[in-house]
Design a protein around this nucleic acid. Structure first.
Lengths: 199, 199
DNA sequence: CAGCTATTATAACCTGGTACTAATTATATA
DNA sequence: TATATAATTAGTACCAGGTTATAATAGCTG
């Protein structure tokens, strides 16, 4: 194991290689030889050492990731994971604030994501075929930050007979701190199923 | 052009082929020969006729799509396309309701997407480093449906000096019908830049 | 100089195709 | 029934973008 001062060029090249592939996963080894001025064999040895798969494998992995993402999009139906639900009474959901939910400069969650969790919970807790938000009166008590887990609790306050509206209150917490509260009025249209655009 | 009654088997196969590739884009021609019991040349002729690219092209296209999606995620910062913006005065954004925004059984847009458009426009129109929604009072006037284009118009109603709050009204329309209205109070913290989670 | 790492070269082989030519089979219509 | 036409199958050459393996060369260093 000879370890001298000048063993950098390889490491530097490895870094550059990682960076290049990272910022353009569609690059071929041949392209990389041109950019890094080493033989194609060196590139391939480097990829080996760095455990970077070949172009086609990279594309396949990306395709698989996006395919899975599309498949799990129906999960997008409700924002947050519902962990408890008593129809027409109450419900609880958990929503973790991730990078895609925050203002990138501040790491503070955009209001509509916090709202979305509360709104979809308020709709879910109503035991009806079709339930739509009519009005909402909301307050963002304190900002929610990247990585925090937002726990929303919904309570159905009143259901006007078998009629059209229900009132739902939602409170969202991070730990024991309330971060959001909202009063929702939800439309509940029981009978008619007016679906259009069939086939 | 001979057109008789019994020219179906090919069309049927084409349909099956399309379906198979659609539900598993990762399938090779060789696999397809096994499933459809025809030669690999037939499979390839069929793909030609149907203009279905080869496996590797399909994966590359999927990878590109997802890569673009990730790259344009910062565009996710604002929901809807802002088409006009006069800072501290008014703004307009357009948001097309797509399949991922609606209740699948009814084709009616989920409230939080309509809200998200209005909310992000209300925040965008405020000319400040950091602007956060404090409260909102919203009303969903009529439901918005799949395929409709939602046009939100925001008006800044008052700015309390150089202080902390601004009032913004947002009205959303489909055509000339108002579908949503909201009164937002937006926090505007000028000076302090309290960013955490650095590196 | 020996010994070591790093790099480059060379060749065989692989997958999943395209492009092209040709033969075979099925079908339909005059 | 013959024959034109369409559909299918077969076979070959070639390609990109690699892997695997084996060997040669360069460069330093003690």
């Amino acid at each position: 194991m000879v370890r001298t001062i000048e063993r950098l060029p390889k490491r530097q090249r490895h870094q550059q290689l990682s960076r290049l592939i990272d910022e353009n996963p569609f690059i071929t080894d041949r392209e990389l030889t041109r950019q890094l001025k080493v033989s194609i064999q060196t590139i391939r040895l480097d990829r080996m050492e760095l455990a970077i798969p070949e172009l086609r494998e990279r594309l396949k992995l990306m395709a698989e990731r996006s395919y899975d993402a599309v498949r799990s999009l129906p999960l997008h139906e409700v924002i947050g994971d519902i962990v408890d639900l008593q129809l027409d009474r109450s419900g609880i959901s958990i929503f973790e604030i991730r990078a895609e939910h925050v203002f990138s400069r501040t790491g503070i969650a955009r209001g509509h994501h916090v709202f979305a969790q509360a709104n979809s919970l308020a709709v879910a807790v109503i035991n009806e075929e079709i339930a739509l938000t009519a009005t909402a009166d909301i307050r963002f008590v304190r900002s929610v930050k990247l990585g925090e887990k937002c726990i929303a609790k919904a309570y159905v306050r009143s259901i006007s007979g078998e009629r059209s509206k229900a009132k739902v209150e939602v409170f969202s917490y991070v730990g024991d701190e309330m971060v959001f509260q909202g009063h929702f009025v939800i439309y509940r249209s029981t009978g008619e199923t007016v679906i259009e655009g069939g086939i």
